[in-house]
Amino acid sequence: MNKRFLYLLLLPGILFLAAFMLIPIMLTIASTFVQDGQLTLEGYLHFFRDGYFNRILFTTLRVSVVTTLVCVVLGYPAAYYISRTSARKKSILLALAIFPLLTSPVVRSFSWMIILGKKGLLNTFLLSTGLIHDPLEIMYTPVAMMVGLVHLFLPLIIITLLGVMENLDYELVLAARSLGASSFTAFRKIIFPLTVPGLIIGSILVFVGSLTAYTTPALLGGKERVISTFLYQNAMTLNDWQAASVIAVIMIVITFVVVGLMNKWANRLNPKG
């Protein structure tokens, strides 16, 4: 193989990403440690001492954790059903899961504004049945964000799990059954343990996605801030670039730590190594 040829193929992409992604990010990271020409951690300390920021961080984590859990609870059985159904049904359901994934997040979050709003579909329905007498205040709360995020990421965990379940050798289940296991026992002892690595990967995708999502919290969260809308507010409304950069670095660190840890865990659980 010709080395020069290899460089010719790879270098344009490398240079492009270096100039327009790597270097800007490095510079952003570096800038958070410098204030008035001095090396300092003040930028970070300031944030973690600030109750408001801690509250936002806590809300973000809480919303992301709940979103991930709900996605797992809704997505796992659905993915299992899809993986076991007939080929025809499978391709239809797969298409129906991929469609929302490719649809604009603005459209998807907007749809929940129609449903969850004060005069929205849900309130209209509940009021008309007499179950409630005053409209529920769901819109612009963490609950609204969570519903929107679940809707946003549910397809992702379904198709991720589906990928794992499709690769599962169904003969393992037959083997367990022939050794005396009921279908439920076969599921519990064979299928579930073997899909845990996929479940972890799917959960990482949902968790990190929820943690960093912007559109849905911006539309459904109102004044309720999460870390990504807080970054935007600092950068664009308050013009506090130092603060925005610190938030950006915190987001990068959280993302990489979560992805790194969960990947390690998933790899350890994966018997194929």
């Binding site: 800007p24 952003t28 960093t212 950069s245 950006a248 990489f256």
Partner: peptide, 19 residues
């Protein structure tokens, strides 16, 4: 080459604006 999907979009957007 795959890292742009790993970096939070909002962080990338802000960084690109700044630099």
């Amino acid at each position: 080459f795959l890292s742009p999907v790993l970096i939070p979009g909002i962080v990338l957007g802000f960084t690109l604006l700044r630099y």
